[in-house]
Design a protein around this nucleic acid. Structure first.
Lengths: 252, 252
DNA sequence: GGGAGCGTTTCACCACGCGAAACGCTTAGG
DNA sequence: CCTAAGCGTTTCGCGTGGTGAAACGCTCCC
């Protein structure tokens, strides 16, 4: 029935949790109709989630509990590399006055792990834990550029090349061209592939045994990320920070 | 069997997730023995969690995925009050140079929602999503001080008065005394009730219709949180920030 | 005062989650 | 070099536990 040997009740419960995450505090019936599930089933799931402390019930308005934040922070703290990366993200944000982030690949998608706004950084709805198609983000491209071909193909097969803007990469040839150029110059460029008007550069963070830990990136508006700043100043800062981070990780 | 009408499979899955959260990346057998569950059962749960993207499998080493962080951040963003509180936490941390935090009550426990370290703040393993017994924290006492008696009693009945340090409050009489003093002076004091050597003051944040949203607090080492600073300077800053926050919330 | 909507409860059914056991595989040790 | 221990994975028959249609009581608003 389901994929294979997986537990349907758990899949449903996470669908309910995700529904609560996107639709905010909401009542039982809205969930049931939104997910096309019987009310009694949703009710039982919510009772269970509430009993476990993962959902709050404010007079029939169900919402996600902060226990998810607890687990999320534990997930973020699971590797010391992520903590070291947070410091470098802070430095980059301070020195460039733009937004800086550290991103990893998880299940074939790019996930923001740390993010910091510099003094002039533009607002954007990126937050830790947010996922984007890996081929659209600068850090994602940087990560992919160090993956073996078969692993890249597997990700493309699984997720396709979904566009987030008209300038997103959408065909495999362009992707591999961009990855090749990324390898050559050591950093990637995302030109308005995630958000229009926003440009970013990214660099892969290599750990021990030549594995990719994740990617550091700097992003800002196209009118500031251009010319000599785009070609020299920011890449130099980014690659410097990446290099320092790699040393931190090796000799922590 | 279980509480009543709840779904056992879901309870187990969260126990597995929590195990991964506290024990870091770990293998299947360790989970099975740690939770006293058959390997095949744990395996099925892990496969489901991995399929849903909530667990990562790095060559047999299972770990929590950052999807939990995604849900957690959504939980934190569910109320605009929490976002406004974040700004005030930042201001308090900057102006006092200590650690400031915004805390709410969830399922009878105090949960840190926002936290910021000031210039001189001491390190502590408090992070967003972390839960502590509500009667031990300054913000928790502040919140309780505005709850009706029956609601306080219900929480005490449910969770007891667990001590975190020898100076934690452990009997109901002392608790109600402290709450009464909190009401009188408008702010609470936690003298080394959570961590030895750490003192904190907290104030309740009152929303519309006289309901308590949460609590703001400032914490630091006992040698800096004392004398005139403890009695006047910090309470004044704290109550000022709380008042501003309440206005922000009302007229947002 | 009636009807629509809500969250909750009930109940019989049989799919589905369960766990003992067996299975390959890798690793370590004699 | 062979064995044994340990790992993650797979199998399979059992029976329970998750399921969903339906009914229930309640509040709110015509």
């Amino acid at each position: 029935m389901a994929s294979e040997g997986t537990i349907r009740a758990i899949e449903r419960t996470f669908r309910i949790a995700e529904f609560l995450g996107t639709h905010g505090p909401v009542g039982l019936s809205a969930i049931a109709t939104g997910l096309e599930l019987p009310k009694s089933t949703v009710y039982r799931h919510l009772r269970t989630l509430e009993g476990e402390g993962y959902v709050t019930d404010d007079e029939g308005n169900y919402a996600l509990s902060l226990r998810f934040l607890d687990l999320g922070e534990r997930a973020r703290g699971r590797h010391s590399e992520y903590r070291l990366a947070a410091e470098k993200v802070g430095e980059l944000a301070d020195r460039t006055a733009e937004r800086a982030q550290f991103t990893i690949e998880e299940h074939g998608r790019a996930v923001y792990v740390h993010q910091q706004m510099g003094a002039n950084a533009v607002r954007a709805d990126t937050y830790p834990g947010k996922r984007v198609p890996i081929h659209t983000s600068a850090a994602g491209l940087a990560i992919l550029s160090h993956y073996p071909r078969r692993r890249i193909d597997a990700i493309v097969d699984r997720h396709g090349l979904e566009a987030m803007t008209p300038r997103s990469i959408t065909d495999p040839e362009t992707l591999h061209d961009r990855l090749q150029r990324t390898r050559e110059r050591g950093y990637s460029i995302n030109d308005q592939g995630v958000i229009e008007g926003l440009r970013a550069i990214g660099a892969p963070v290599i750990g021990s045994e030549n594995t990719v830990i994740g990617g550091l990136s700097i992003s800002g508006p196209i009118n500031r990320i251009e010319g000599q700043r785009l070609d020299e100043e920011l890449p130099s800062l980014l690659l410097g920070a990446t290099n320092e981070l790699e040393l931190d990780i090796t000799y922590q």
